[in-house]
Structure formats: C-alpha cells, structure tokens
Design a protein around this nucleic acid. Structure first.
Lengths: 239, 239
DNA sequence: ATCAAGGAATGATTTTTATCATAAAACCAT
DNA sequence: ATGGTTTTATGATAAAAATCATTCCTTGAT
C-alpha cells in the first residue's frame, strides 16, 4: 500500500496519471524528475471518434503519438491511388515510430477505427530527451525495431498464404491480439480488410461467407464469432 | 590539403580508415574522441565470398554489422519452411538495425551475394555508446526508421504490382540503386528473385524471357542489359 | 573428362484470384 | 420517412499465376 501511495503522489507531481503508460514508465525509469515533469506537462490528450483522422499522410511531422486507448489503423496511398493498410495498432503502441525520426512528413495516415484517446508530444521534446538521456533512446530503439519487425513479419506471413489463409489469419489476429475474445465486433469494413491483406473486397466477403457456410464462424453484420477455432487455425497455418 | 592531412592523422589515431563510413561519421560527430577511439579499436573487419553466410537466423545476437563493401541479402525462413528475402542491402547500410535492439536472436539470415566486407562491432558497445551519447541514439533511430520504412515500402510497391510489374521494378531497382548502370551482372539466381518478390521461379524465368522477346532487355546468363528503359519503366508503373 | 545436381527455359494444364454484373441490406443526411 | 450512397452479398466469367512435366545448359566435385 505504501508503494502505491508513493507512486500516486509521484504521478500527481508529474501530471501523468496513466499507470500502464509504457512511454511514461520508460521515461520515469531513465529520465530525471525535472525532465519527465516537463514532458508530462507539455503533453496533450485528444480523443477521436471512430473514423476520424488523427494525422494525414504527407502532413509535416511535428508530434509524436502514443495510443492511450482505442484502435488505430495506419494506411498509405500509393502513386497508383491505391490505399494500403500497413497495420492495426492498439493501446500502448507508438504509432509514430516509423518515419518520424528520419522524415519531414508523415508517411502514413493514422485513423481511429474505434473511439481512441491519443497522447501527443512535441517531437522536439522527445528528441531532446533522447539527446540528454541515452537510455531513453535505447528504449525507443527497442520499441522501434520491434514495431518494424512485427510489420515486416505480418507482410511475410500474409504473402505466403492463399486468400482463405489470409482471412483466417486476420480473424485470429483480431481475436487474440486485439479483443482477446472469440467473439467481437469487427472495427473495419470488408473493404478495409481487403486493403490490409491485399485482396479484393469481393473475395473477402465471399470467403467470410464460405467460413460461415462451413460453420467455422458466425457472422452478424460486423460481429464475428469464432466457432471452430481448430479449423480456422488449420486454414491459417496450411492455407 | 591541410584539412585532409588533419583528417588522416585523426583517422589513424582512431583506427578507422574508411572515409565514407556513415557509422564512423555519426560517431565522430557526436561522440568524444576517447569513445570513438575504443569503438574503432574494438571493431573487426571480415570479408565474405559470394554465397557465404554472414550470420544465421536464430543465432544469438552479439554483434552489430555494418556493410563496408559488397552486397548482402537478408532472408528469413517461415514455419512453413519457405524462404523469403526481405531486402538486398548495399554498402553503408546497417543491416542489423532491425531486431538487434529488441530481440535475443537474429530474425534474419545475412548472406553475401557478392564479395563483401563487413565491419563488426560488439552490440554492447554500441548500446553503451547510445547510453552515454544521446545524439548517437538519434542518429541510429533515424537510420533505423528509414531502413524499416524502405522495406515496408518495397512490400507495398511489390504487392500492388502484377508479376511483370514486379520483375520490371526489380530490374530497375538493381540498375538504379545498386549498380547505377543499365547493364549489370545479376547477383542472384532466378529462384532468389522469386523469393524476393513473392512469385514462382518459373514465372520469373518466363517473364524475363518475355522481356527479352519484346526487346526490352538483353539477357546473357546472369548479365542483364536494359535496352528499352521507357517500356520497362512503364511496365513497372502500370503493371 | 565425366557425372551429378542445380539452374534456366518452355509448354500444357489446373488452380487461384480478379473483374464484371446485379441485387439486397444497412446507413446517412435531409 | 425517403432517397441516395455505401456496404454486403453472390454468381458468372475472364485473367493471372501456380503447378506439373520435360529438356537443355552450367557448374562443381570426383
């Protein structure tokens, strides 16, 4: 109890109240009080409704984002005008890690796909903090390389599967990594799933219907219930 | 002349002799002499013949690699035993940037696909340097996020093209970014190209033959000459 | 020099996936 | 509520790509 009280008072003093905040913990662990105090006071929190754009591809980079709650998609339009979803990010991800340190403009559009709360820090301050506290830099490097590796891995996994395998993989991903439940509300349209795994909308719909007919899942609009987990896993693995 | 002499003496003193070394420059710019001295003295250089493995997927991470000369492929075997080439890296790339900061084991196998010289640093030392000199951390973060963004971009570009477009893109990539010439010796087999752009070996061969018959390129074994640059570009863009 | 093994090449065939067409259902703004 | 738009749905067809089969050509090891 004593420890908790100490933490609480410390948090109050810093203006950062979220206990599970990885960024905050990263800062607290390595950065002296006076610095984390500045950071916590400067940060602003902003909430976004489902569908709202948090930041647009090609707009100048000024801020560093941290997802406090909700779900966010990172997407990108190519020269050929096609839209691609790079990843679906969840709470405690730093969606800004890619690009922000080397680019002038955001490479990806960030959109809330559920009600989302974002913590926003001026990038300058983050950079300044890394400058003065190398260990914080190590922390960011760790997160950064993990984020990149995960995204690359998803691409490889996706590309080595046929369409049924991709859909199965996606449904399992939502179930395991996002909602931690066998029944959930899809936060994206069939079209967005298509953009995420690189296939046509028609085929996404068709294969979801197949899975329904094969009694692997139940569908009710956007609600998905995984009924035959084993088979779905098999399709994801073999497919 | 005077300046060059100064540089030379400084380089001698540090045991790092490569003028174009980005890593060295990064260190020199931000790290005091005594530290860069340690790093340069500890580093070892190693050369690899075409085909030799530099480091294997899943082996424990101990070193940080920097490509001094040559060309290297990063590849990964998935659970389904399929081999995927993630990227082709050239001199002055830090191929280690992905994974090394967060993982226990290398996520990718590094193989020399031409005679290659690698500078090898104990990762601990790099981390220690970031700890003590935040600006060096910023430098690595920049390189790291750039590397990741480039790889992700290549995946997106690749996935939004048909097979002819992918081959065209690859041939142009070798021409522009690696060999800076319209005529070059392919450093990889048709099978490896297939693993790089996610298609079958037969189709790689077939489409190369098509391009030859359509007089877009000339083929002589591994030697490729781009004859009709415009058409190749068009196929890469539209395809 | 010879043989085995892998790489390159090409055709025929099958499978997979995209495209086109149409319609019902859900959603939104007035 | 109503009309318009987007999303979901399904079928038919065309196009793209993988697979299978066979041959030739290189290359490296003995």
């Amino acid at each position: 109890m004593n420890e908790i009280q100490v933490m609480e008072s410390k948090e109050k003093a810093h203006g950062c109240k979220c206990e599970e905040c990885i960024l905050k913990n990263l800062i607290f662990n390595y950065v002296p009080d006076e610095d984390s105090y500045i950071l916590c006071n400067v940060k602003r929190e902003q909430s976004f409704k489902k569908g709202e754009i948090i930041v647009k591809q090609n707009s100048p980079i000024v801020d560093f984002f941290y997802i406090k709650s909700g779900i966010v998609k990172l997407s990108k339009v190519t020269e050929s005008k096609r839209n691609h979803i790079i990843s679906i990010a969840k709470p405690h991800d730093y969606t800004s890690l890619l690009t922000v340190f080397h680019g002038k403009n955001y490479a990806y559009t960030m959109t809330a796909i559920e009600y989302t709360e974002i913590c926003i820090f001026p990038l300058n301050l983050i950079i300044d903090l890394v400058m003065r506290h190398g260990s914080f830099g190590i922390g960011l490097l760790k997160k950064s390389s993990k984020t990149a590796d995960d995204i690359i891995d998803r691409f490889i996994q996706n590309n080595s599967r046929n369409l049924r395998g991709r859909i199965a993989m996606t449904l399992l991903d939502f179930s395991f990594n996002i909602y931690k439940s066998h029944i959930y509300e899809l936060p994206v349209s069939r079209k967005e799933i298509a953009e995420l795994i690189g296939m046509t909308t028609e085929n996404v719909i068709r294969i979801l219907s197949e899975f329904r007919k094969e009694k692997i899942i139940k569908i009710n609009g956007k609600e998905i219930e995984i009924v035959d987990f084993e088979r779905l896993k098999m399709i994801s693995d073999r497919g």
